[in-house]
Design a binder for these strands. Structure first.
Lengths: 226, 226
DNA sequence: TATGAAATGTAAAGAAATGTAAAAGTTGAA
DNA sequence: TTCAACTTTTACATTTCTTTACATTTCATA
């Protein structure tokens, strides 16, 4: 079942479309401003985003631009007719399709299916979280949400687990604090938010190997023997 | 070309999947009971095994357990939906992924590719010579973010480490201060910014060999015996 | 060769980021 | 509700980075 994220401040329209898409066999989430929309999209739990251009807090273009910095998630943009639509779909912005408002929900479904089909065909689904991660003596089952070191279970909290997975996925590479904050805590990193630091601290204590190193003012890295 | 071994007693399904995978560019063998499956797998002539749980002669769990005693060959398990799948992938059993039946062959391909990609990546990681820099008695692991001299760990700060890597990568060649500033401190070098000088100074002290020479008004060079 | 401006070396002070114990706030289950 | 587990915030110690200040070196030029 495909999961669609709708970002549009018109709640009535969201409701309507949401209902239609649900009947058509999609799973739908809606949010009503750009900022939370971006956060949700970055969580990578949806297959496609329907994104309105006019939005409170952060407009559709900004959302798309920031999303595209790290993600290839398919996006359909909703625009008022007459906007210079050429540029919207243009490569420089990176939307996969657009739909002028007002639109027929049937057309939305058609375009949606087309894009999803294309996406699976081109196998952009390769981001599929593969189930098991193993780096040296640490082993993680993603769906089992369990982690072991030297075959011994390490009890982790939900956040610690997500954090470990994110670090292991990028083992040997630096992961930015900003990205971790968005992906794991689901909020933008603000200057005096020390929560992430605490989780790293606690995770380090539990892992009790010396693998997570700090890159000051950038982020963390799960180091691997070379 | 990747070789896949399918162990499943449903011959019709095997045929179907086999055909699909062949089209997708895999080479496929199928067997229909656990015992011969295990034998084939142990011969180490495949890159990945697709293993059904329900099997005649020897069930999937047993096959996997015995296989794991000597082999790390990647395995995807096929299970009836609703089985406690957590445990199936569970670390104690050692499958790399699972797929509930009935499944979409496209998803099988996606997961298969994901696992194979991971497998090659870890292989590559172990072969990547560029991950390790060695100049005479100084040895650096980039992914491990650690540096040794005469096999003894040198504790470096993040910036000192980056600096050393940059110098070693260009050992025997001059590295400009401007470039170092941009690459390591992520800012343009301004006339009275002495930060870089300090880091060089500190790094020299820690390395305690006389390798980093100054090229006045240009930059630095990590010297090597000729 | 002597001179002085410019560049470098580095100790030490100051600023910023991080580590972490402990307090405070949240959440979910019984 | 109450409790326990978890998350976030607070507060302070520590580490790392930058700036300052001054000594030293380099090198073009007189």
């Amino acid at each position: 079942m495909n999961k669609i994220l709708i970002i549009d401040d018109d709640e009535e329209l969201c409701e309507l479309v949401s209902e239609y898409l649900t009947v058509e066999g999609f799973e739908v989430n809606t949010v009503h401003d750009g900022e939370t929309g971006l956060c949700k999209a970055l969580k990578n739990q949806h297959d496609l985003v329907v994104l309105d251009v006019m939005l409170p807090k952060k407009n559709g273009f900004d959302v798309l631009r920031e999303l595209r910095q790290t993600s290839k998630l398919p996006v359909i943009m909703l625009t008022a007719r007459g906007d210079d639509m050429d540029k919207i779909v243009g490569l420089e912005i990176g939307a996969d399709d657009y739909l002028p408002k007002p639109f027929n929900p049937r057309e939305l479904v058609a375009r949606l299916r087309a894009i999803l089909r294309r996406a699976t065909q081109t196998e952009e689904r390769q981001q599929l979280a593969s189930e098991k991660l193993q780096i040296e003596d640490v082993e993680v089952s993603v769906s089992g949400r369990s982690a072991k070191r030297n075959n011994e279970e390490i009890p982790l909290t939900a956040i610690e687990f997500d954090l470990l997975v994110e670090l292991l996925k990028n083992a040997g590479n630096i992961v930015k604090k900003e990205d971790l904050s968005v992906q794991i805590l689901e909020r933008k990193l603000s200057p005096f938010d020390r929560s992430l630091d605490m989780h790293v601290s606690n995770l380090r204590k539990k892992l009790d190997n010396d693998k997570i190193k700090t890159i000051r003012s950038v982020g963390y890295i799960y180091t691997v023997k070379s």
